[in-house]
Each structure stands twice: as structure tokens, then as C-alpha cells.
Design a protein around this nucleic acid. Sequence first.
DNA 1: ACTAGAATTGGAATCGTTTCCAATTCTTCT
DNA 2: AGAAGAATTGGAAACGATTCCAATTCTAGT
Lengths: 344, 344
Amino acid sequence: MAVTITDVAKRADVGIGTVSRVVNGGTNVSISTRNRVEAVMRELGYHPNAHARNLKRQSVATIGFLFMSGQRQMSDPFFSTLMAGLADAAGEMNHDLHVASCPHAEHELATLERLIRGNHVGGIVLTDTRLEDPRVGLLQERAFPYVAFGRVSAEAEPNALPTVDIDGHAGVQQAMRHLIAQGHRRIGFITLPVQLMCTQDRLNGYLGALQAADLPLHEALVILGGLSEDEGRRAAEQLMALSPPPTAIVCCSDVLAFGAARAIEEHGLSVGQDVALVGFDDVSLAAHASPPLTTVRQPIYEIGREIVHMLVQRMRGAITTSKLIEPTLIIRQSTTQWKPTPLL
Amino acid sequence: MAVTITDVAKRADVGIGTVSRVVNGGTNVSISTRNRVEAVMRELGYHPNAHARNLKRQSVATIGFLFMSGQRQMSDPFFSTLMAGLADAAGEMNHDLHVASCPHAEHELATLERLIRGNHVGGIVLTDTRLEDPRVGLLQERAFPYVAFGRVSAEAEPNALPTVDIDGHAGVQQAMRHLIAQGHRRIGFITLPVQLMCTQDRLNGYLGALQAADLPLHEALVILGGLSEDEGRRAAEQLMALSPPPTAIVCCSDVLAFGAARAIEEHGLSVGQDVALVGFDDVSLAAHASPPLTTVRQPIYEIGREIVHMLVQRMRGAITTSKLIEPTLIIRQSTTQWKPTPLL
DNA sequence: ACTAGAATTGGAATCGTTTCCAATTCTTCT
DNA sequence: AGAAGAATTGGAAACGATTCCAATTCTAGT
């Protein structure tokens, strides 16, 4: 049915070895032969069979992306942007991107095992790394190429494990300095799920900024959040119920901030004027929210691309160094209209 | 290096044929043999090599998803939700999901060709179908299994081409009836890109609703939009510049509506009170916008699942009928606080 | 013209499955 | 007990590529 290398060889009146050499870079083939074979390939519409090739080569130009559909809020714009970066870079490097969904966390190791052992993928992209992440353990043990988005261990030498990460500590500190400079003294903080590595990192930024400014830490101002708008809303409600409530809130994601904005408004207060609000990510809606959201920008698309570049290098056996990316604070109206003496 | 079927056969002291039968459903194998083989498989950590299997079977349990990273706004939450549905359903049906990005539209046919001819995928999912879509032409010609999200031709017998679609006509009509019942007479309409099939469909819903209510059509109230917030904002600016401006706006996507909300506010008007606003999709942020957005809900996640179910059936050679899904209007504050005689 | 060496070419062996047919073992019936 | 038929089992052939080695053709130097 399909056109095989043998069909091409017959038609071009050469051996299959020659065709193979033409397909793979054309070394050791005379110009005239190469041209003839290439013409025939085009004429017949030949495309190498991916499975035969991978079987023989014992390697796959496919990148696996473990997708926790159950955990992460599916509609989080963060994800599709990351995916676009992964997919584009993979395409450019002639690699395929394979998305494996794990609706249930218990299956994640089994899925990983199947992908690796069955030769479905030649490398893995992880996100939402957790403390003592069992996936990392498995990959390390198997010496299987992978790159994690998010650091993997607080203690380990950063280059020991291949990661691309955002400097959440510095990002939150920038946000905090901005707020403190505007006169805020009671600043709430809403985190991501506690088991994520980045949660600790960003929290440290919060604590560090307080210390640097000689402000006291009120534990009630730190609320354990999550991944969804609802959790942001719930967390902000807790903050607004304090007396006095904070005059500013830093959220560890834009999605949390959108939820928090709702809670603030439901308390009859205005985001920006009564309570300053800062997000994290800079998803595209942040600029179009009302008021536009001040946020710590992660270049998510570029991070996706960087992850793939690093992973492909590793799949080729190269050694790579981890990357730590500096986020930038994007200042918008949600923090610039605060009135220092609100009538609370 | 890896564990092969031969390793398992040797260890379990059976022939490779027997192991193969155990792996594939275990027909014609005695209970005791099956148990023994399964124990060995677990002991050695055997997983069938995907490439050897696919090569022999001449079929692939992999679904291809053509992802136009350049066109569609990457961060559109719509997409990640759809992907989650695709990925989850594919996983449940033991299929892999393969995402191919097409940063440039010119490459889309070449990419499709490569995926099909190279046996990378056994079926294709298309979205954002266009009038006279060349991708559909290619797939039909090759008789390759595919399912499109979005109808493919206005004229063709709907079951001739395999699609899952939302009844955009009915969805917009619901929204229009709701607005008209509240007393709105000048209703703006912001479309998606003109070449998408669903644009015409939804526009027809708008026109039909006007006619049913005996309202005149003002062409200036229909603005060609796009896919991003920016385009929604620009389109709404055009509408607000009319005199008099519309008292309500229907947008063909939530993302457009978020942009439109910004434009309305920049005109010093309040969304909900001065201008009613309706979106389309019901992405999760819609409920958390301020005010919460009235919108036509598409069950995107379920649609993703349905597409995969249909596609897998087709990959197995079954004949399927197209599905038309009824959307539901979700009424929230962006349309319920309108004051019939605004002081414009 | 002849030959050594380089450049090009052909094709067998191989990757790890599935599948089919023939061989073997087990049942059951007379 | 013996035979017919059913149930199990083993393994060769094939899928379509890559890769390597041997064979052939070319080139250039004498």
C-alpha cells in the first residue's frame, strides 16, 4: 500500500542502501545518483516509515510530555502556552511531541514506565515538580533523558539534575519591593499547592523581602492556595476577613489573582484603589483584566522552547547545564492606584 | 538492553508466539501458562516495543492533533481544555496523542503528509475548520481517518464528512433571545475570523434572531473580530464609537468578550449596567470575571472526548455519524443589571 | 596501459513484534 | 483402548528501515 524504500530503489534502479543514504544526509552518494533518487522520492511521495526506522535505530525522535489533566486546572492558559513552545521547538528540531495524560496521580509512574520501556519516547518533559518527586527518581535511576520545568530539590547542586526554572524568589521580591515602595505594610501572600517546589521558592522571596524591609511576618497573612480561581477566591476571602485586612496581596499565579480579585470586590472594595493585587505568570488575560493586573512575567513560551532544546541535546548524549530564568515585574493599574489611607 | 519478548519467552520457558498471545488478550492460552508468563513479564518489567508492534501491525494507535500555534492565540484556554479531553480519552482507549505544531500555515499540508505517509499517526484531529479546507481535501482523498471539530462544508450532507460541531446558530439565538427579552434593540455582534466555518454559522444565528424579533439589521453593528483579546477590544471600540452605540454586544468567544469589556470600560461605561455583554465558550475565567460573564457554554472537555471516541471508531473501520452538540446559555451578571434608559 | 587507492554501490543481516500454520497435547466419545 | 476433534503451543516469515561489509567502478599517478 504505502511507498517503501524498496519501491523507490526499484524505480530509481539503485540498491536500498543507496536510497537510505540519500534519505539520511546523502553522504557517500554521487551527485547524479542523489538527484535521481530524490526525484523518484518526490514522484512517488515517499516518506520513511517511522516505526521501521525507530525499530532499527533503537531510538526515537519523540518527546513525551506528562500532562496531569486531573491536577492542574485544565483551562489554565499557562499550559497551552507552554505546550505551544514545546510543540514549536520540537517541530523545528524534527522531533515529535507526545502528550500523555494522567488523570490520576497513581498512574503517573506506570505511564512513565510504559512510555520509556515501550520506546514510545526518547525523552521526557516534566512540570509541576514536587518535593521528592517519584518521577524524577524513576528517570534518574533509569538514566533516561528528561528535563524538568521547576527545580527538583532544594539542596542538590542545581546542575546535577537537568531543569529549567524561573527564579520565583527574585520575582516575588521584585513584586514586594514595588509594593513596599508604595507604602504597603500589610501584604498578604497566596501560595500554590504546598507540595510544588516553586511554592517554597516563592514563599522564600516573600519572607526575604519582609526581612529586607524590616517588616514583621504575620503568619495569618500567608494563605495556602492552589491552582484554580476558586482557590484564589477562597484564600482572598480569608485575608479580607482579617482585621485589619491587608492593603496588598501577592498571588503565586494570575489565575489565583483573578479569583482573589473577585473576593476583594465582593467585599465592596476596589482592586487597585483599596487593595493592590499582584499576580504571577503574565498570561495574556492579565493585561486585559480590569484593572489590568500587575504581575511577575514568566516567558512561558520561551521556556517551553528552551526545555526542548535542552532535552534534545540530552537525548543526543550531551551534557547540559540547568537554566534559571529571571522573571520581570510588569506594573499595571492593579497596584498603581492605591490610596494610602483607605477608610477601612 | 531492553527486555524483549524473547527474553520473556526464554524465562517462562514458552515460545514467543505464546507470549505474544498473552500480551494481546490471552486468547487460546491455558490459564496456567498465562499466569506464568504474566508473572515473568512483571518480574522483568516487560513492555512491548511500540515500533516493532506498529511495524508489524501496519497500524498505529496514535492520534495526531494538528496544532496551529501561529494562528490561534496560544494562550486561549479553549485549547488546553480541548487537549485535556483529547488526551484523557485517548489514554483511556490506549491510544497515544501526538501533537504536531504548525507555526506557519504553508507547512500544514506537508506536516499532514509526513504524519500520514510516515505512519506516525493512525488518525487525525482537526480544529478551526475553514471553508474549502485543504486539509480536509487531502484527508478525504487519501481516505485517511479523521474527525474535525467544526463543520466542514455548509452544503454537504452533514454525515458525509465526520465532524463534531457545536450548534453555534442555536447558541447565538439563545443569547439574542435573552437580550431582546430584556429590552435590548441595538445589539452589536463581534465575529471570529471570517474564514472559519463557525463564524458563518454563528452569524446566521444573529441574523435569524433579528428577523424572528422583527428587528432591522444595521450592518455597522456587525464587526469582524479575530481570536485575541486585542481584536475584541478593537472591535468593541468601533461599536462604542457609533452613535448611538449598541446597548448590548454578543461576542463569538469569551476571549473576545474580555477584550470588549476593556473597551467598554475605557469608554467610561460599565459592563452589565450600561452595556450588556455575552461571550461564547464558557472558559473557566468567565465565571470569575467582573462582572461574571453571561456566555454560551460549549462543553469543550466533553467535545474533546467525543472526538476521540469517534476517531478511534473510524480508525477501526467503523462508520460514524456526525454529532451536533447543543450549547447552553449561562446567564450571569454581565447581562442582568442593565438599566433600560441609560443616560447616554 | 596498469595498478593502488578512493569513491560509490548493492544487499544480507538485524531490530522486536505479530500472525499463521503445523505440531503437539489434551478431551471426550465410542 | 483408540480415534477424532479441540485446545494449546512453537517458531518461521514478514513488516521497512539502517548499517556494515564486500564488490564494483572510478581516478590519478606511474
